[in-house]
Amino acid sequence: MAESREHTFTGAKGRITVRAWPRDLPRYLAILVHGYGEHIGRYEYVAGRLVRHGAAVYGLDHMGHGRSEGDRALIEDFEDVVTDVHTVEEQARADHPGVPVVVIGHSMGGMIAARYAQRYASGLTALVLSGPVIGEWAIVPELLTYEEPPDTPIDPATLSRDPSVGAAYAEDPLVWHGPFRRTTLDAFATALDTIAKGGTFGALPTLWVHGEDDQLVPLPGSRSGIDAVRGGDLTERIYPGARHEVFNETNKDEVLADVTSFIDRTLPTGPF
């Protein structure tokens, strides 16, 4: 497990906790963007692989998530979350001036990362989207038909074919196990519409990875979103039989090898 340290900053809606996995003289900076209801601490394995690959890695707990302040799983405007991620990028750049930046987002974090690329692509070297909530996500309009969304917790078995992943998720006290907040669902709907109308990623090299058997963020809905925003340099990897969390899947090493190979292609200095 790679060494890590934490610090906080004042974000758009309160104190935000950041975790950094340092590396001396990194080849690139990796900004990890986690998904709904979880926290950046679930990305230890991913961060360790990236550090060994030559990255200094940074990731925040979004407002209302993990160790950050805010009502649990409550997000009023995802533009605020994008701004918080940008604060993390600015800190990473201050720590390592002139080093290329790669943003890696999973699920809701993929949606945030996609919007981030629309706002800040000029400063990025590459973008990785894992099982991104983008395009059509049927759960949002479905739950918004209720005045108060029902408590329909995520089935841990849908995360990975590795049962230990679901068991750890179910027992994690920093994971939100309650119902969607209506305010958050409205924010999702607004963000998805904003991204759809926000233009393409242009020349930004983008890797899209997705589990073929993703029941939480089904592949067809995300494909429609990717098609709307993709620029001129998109690499796609769909993993047969894989579920939602491809970074925690039984073939996670294959997935992360695809990620690091893609990053190698985009970096100006070549393989480490």
Results as ranks from 00 to 15, higher is better:
T10R: 06
G11E: 09
G11H: 07
A12K: 15
A12P: 04
R15F: 01
I16P: 03
T17N: 06
T17L: 13
V18E: 06
W21P: 00
R23T: 10
D24Q: 13
L25N: 12
R27G: 02
R27H: 14
Y28I: 06
Y28N: 12
A30E: 10
A30H: 15
I31H: 08
I31W: 14
V33I: 12
H34P: 05
G35A: 08
E38M: 14
E38R: 13
G41C: 05
R42V: 00
Y43N: 14
Y43P: 08
Y45G: 02
A47P: 11
G48I: 10
L50I: 10
V51K: 14
V51T: 11
H53C: 04
A55G: 14
A55M: 14
A55V: 13
A56Y: 05
A56L: 03
Y58L: 13
G59E: 05
L60E: 01
D61N: 12
D61L: 00
H62L: 04
M63Y: 09
M63K: 11
M63A: 05
H65I: 07
H65C: 02
R67N: 12
S68T: 03
D71I: 01
L74W: 01
I75E: 02
I75N: 15
E76N: 07
E76F: 00
D77N: 07
D77E: 10
F78M: 05
F78N: 02
V81R: 02
V81L: 12
T83H: 12
V85R: 03
H86D: 08
H86C: 03
V88P: 08
V88W: 11
V88L: 15
E89T: 10
A92I: 08
A92K: 13
A92V: 02
R93K: 14
R93S: 06
H96P: 03
V99Q: 01
